Simulated assay, not measured.
Amino acid sequence: MKKILFIMTCFIVQDISAQVNRFVYQVTMKPDAENKSDVKTENAYLDISKEKSQFYSENRIKRDSIMQAMFQSGGARNFNREQMEGLRSNIDYSIEKDKASQKVVYKNRIGRDVYSYEEDRPINWKILSETMKIGDYKVQKAETDFAGRKWTAWFTTDLPYQDGPYKFSGLPGLIVKIEDDKGEYSFDLMKNYKIAELPDLTNRFGNAMKVKRTDYVKQQEKFKKDPVSFMTQQNSGGGGGGMRIGAPSPPQSRGGGGQNGDFRKRMEERMKEEVKKNSNPIELN
C-alpha cells in the first residue's frame, strides 16, 4: 500500500512540475528557389507555458546538446561528423511570444553575430466557416497574408491555446496545420506532451543584439550579397560589437596568399552555396 501511495505521489508531483506543453510540428520547406524538388523536412518544437511560448528546431537543440557533451568529455577527440551532419537544420531561428505584452521576438544568426527584433507587422486573420477533422482534432479554416505569402491555417478550439508555429498566433485556438498557397512551406502538428520547464535558449542561441526588423533585413541582404566580406567586416569590428549598417564593405583582396588564400576561397564557395540553397525564404517581403 505504501508503495502504491509513493508511486501516486510521484505522478502528482511530476504533473504539477510539468507546466509546459510541447507541441511537435513537422516542418516541410523548399528553401532553394532554383530547385523546388529539393524538399527539406524536420521537426520543430512549440513549447507553451503560462507566460510565453518558444518555437525552435528539434535538430538544433539535439546538435547543441551533443556538442556540449562532446566538449565536456574530450573535445575534438569525440567529434562525430556523421552524427552532426545528420542533425543539420534549416530552422536556424527561434521565436518567442509573450502572452501578456503580445510581443513576438525573432532571433537568428547572421554570420557570427546573433540578432533579435520585435515583429512589427500584425497578422490579420480571416476566419472561414469551413471545418474538418485532422487527426483527433476538429479544426476550422482561416486565411491570412503575411510577409509576401498567402497562408491557409486550420485551428482547433479543443486545446486551450491561441498559438501556433513560427510567428503565427491570434486565432481562437491552436493552429494544427498551416501552409502557404504555393506549397513551399507547411507546418503540421504531429504530437504533444508535457515537459518540466521551458528550455533556456539563451545558452544555445547566444546573447543577441536587439535591432529593428528593417535593420535586420538590411544586414541579411548584405550577408547574402557578399557573405565573406560581411564576416570579415564582423571580425574587423571586434567580433560583433554592434550594428554596422551603412558601413563600407572591406576590400575584396585582403592579402594572404598560399594556404590562407585557399582557405578563403573554399570558405567563400561554401558560404555562397549555402546562400543559394536558402534563396527561397519563408518571408518574401
Rank of each mutant, 00 (worst) to 15 (best):
M1K: 11
I4G: 00
F11Y: 11
I12P: 06
I16G: 02
N21T: 15
R22F: 10
R22D: 10
Q26I: 03
D38S: 13
D38N: 15
E42D: 12
I48T: 01
I48E: 04
S49F: 01
S53R: 00
S53E: 01
R60Y: 01
I61K: 07
R77V: 14
N78S: 04
R81W: 02
R81E: 13
E82M: 07
R88P: 02
I91Y: 05
D92T: 07
Y93N: 06
I95D: 01
E96D: 08
S101V: 00
Q102C: 03
Q102K: 11
K103V: 03
Y106F: 15
K107W: 04
G111K: 04
R112Y: 13
R112C: 08
R112G: 14
D113M: 15
V114L: 08
V114H: 05
S116V: 08
Y117M: 02
E119W: 02
I123V: 14
I123M: 12
L128V: 09
D136C: 05
Q140N: 13
K141F: 06
K141V: 09
T144F: 00
G148H: 09
G148W: 10
K150P: 02
T152H: 02
A153D: 11
D158E: 14
Y161F: 15
D163W: 06
P165H: 03
K167N: 10
K167Q: 07
F168D: 04
L174F: 14
L174A: 04
V176K: 04
I178E: 05
K182R: 14
I195S: 06
D200Y: 00
N203P: 04
R204K: 02
R204P: 00
G206A: 10
M209F: 06
K210F: 02
V211T: 11
R213M: 08
Y216G: 03
Y216S: 09
K218G: 11
Q219K: 15
E221H: 10
K222Y: 07
K222Q: 11
K224I: 06
Q233L: 14
Q233E: 13
N235R: 12
S236G: 09
G240P: 00
P251Y: 01
G255C: 09
Q259I: 11
G261V: 05
G261Y: 09
R264V: 07
K265P: 03
E269L: 11
M271I: 14
K276G: 01
N280C: 09
E283M: 01
N285W: 07
